[in-house]
Design a protein around this nucleic acid. Structure first.
Length: 298
DNA sequence: AAGCCTGCCAACCGCCCTGGA
DNA sequence: TTCCAGGGCGGTTGGCAGGCT
């Protein structure tokens, strides 16, 4: 037996709301509230609408202080960061943006922001590739880990993963990411692409070498991740490229920070020149634009 | 001018969660 | 403890508008 419908589907009106219906609903809720029951509300006020439809109309359109359109760069940044961190949890994302509804943010993401993000990421990657053509690989033993070739991370952004940033060998980590907004709120909007790379990388626990060295803000984000997740504080640090991964150590958070801080660039914690960053990466035995640093709980 | 395409967004659908009986 | 109604939410759809051919 199926679930009983929430209303009489045959007798409710569907489609766009008329100004009269809007006025009736708004006026009633402003005077009496919803009385804690959306399902019975339309009957009580003489609307031929489903209760759920009334609720949606009120929440997404009629309630006070709703803003539509005109998303700012700052709002874009928050949406991007949170989407990368927690995925399509639109209600949670909306809760961080006063006056915005989950529906609006969802629509905005699907129609504009996703394309903007993909465009920036591609442009950024192409520019870097021109400036830093892949160097000859530094000699080191890299045992293949065949099982890592399946199910790459971030299925909802296949274009970036497949073509721009993520090699197919990266491990997939079915683990929830806590929000780490504090890591992203200070970004310069001019550096949108860097910001996206960082949050993207954070969500998968794997960091393109360039981005890792690029942005000091990655560090507090990682630290937040390490402290909020219960993995006993142990991580496996790997370097990955298109065909294989090399586990360098089982490491704790302090080991990771030690490795990062030993880089000649990281102590600046600002935005070092890309050439310097690439030089540092090479000195550590990695290949910019080819290798990735992965953190896996062990 | 007409038809087609694309982007946008309001609204719907249906599943899951929660709290009360 | 179980059941169920209502609420919440994310995915999807359909219609409209504007641009393009």
């Amino acid at each position: 037996m199926g679930r009983a419908p929430c209303c009489d589907k045959a007798n409710v009106k569907k489609g766009p709301w008329s100004p009269e219906e809007d006025a009736k609903l708004k006026s009633h809720i402003e005077k009496h509230g919803t009385s804690g029951n959306w399902i019975s509300l339309p009957q009580r006020i003489g609307l031929r609408r489903c209760g759920k439809s009334c609720r949606l109309r009120w929440l997404n359109y009629l309630r006070p202080n709703i803003r539509h359109g005109g998303f700012t760069e700052e709002e874009d940044a928050v949406i991007c960061s949170l989407y990368m961190a927690i995925g399509s949890r639109w209600s949670i994302i909306a809760a961080q943006l006063p006056g915005r509804t989950d529906n609006d943010i969802k629509n905005y993401w699907n129609t504009r922001l996703k394309k903007k993000l993909l465009g920036n990421a591609r442009k950024d990657h192409q520019q870097r590739s021109r400036q830093n053509p892949p160097a000859a690989k530094v000699s080191k033993q890299v045992p293949t880990i065949p099982e890592l070739s399946a199910s790459p991370p971030f299925s909802y952004l296949p274009d970036i993963r497949a073509e721009d940033y993520y090699p197919s060998a990266l491990p997939s980590l079915p683990i929830g990411m806590p929000p780490h907004l504090e890591s992203f709120q200070t970004y310069d909007s001019d550096k949108m692409s860097s910001q996206i790379i960082n949050s993207f990388a954070m969500g998968t626990y794997s960091v393109p070498m360039n981005a890792w060295i690029d942005a000091g803000e990655t560090i507090p984000g990682l630290q937040s991740m390490a402290s909020l997740n219960d993995y006993g504080g142990k991580y496996m640090l790997s370097s990955c490229n298109n065909s294989s991964c090399t586990d360098t150590s089982n490491t704790s958070w302090s080991d990771i920070t030690s490795i990062v801080n030993n880089s000649p660039v990281m102590p600046e914690l600002g935005v070092p020149q890309q050439q310097e960053a690439d030089q540092a990466i090479l000195q550590m035995g990695f290949i910019p634009d080819n290798d990735f640093m992965c953190f896996r709980p062990v």
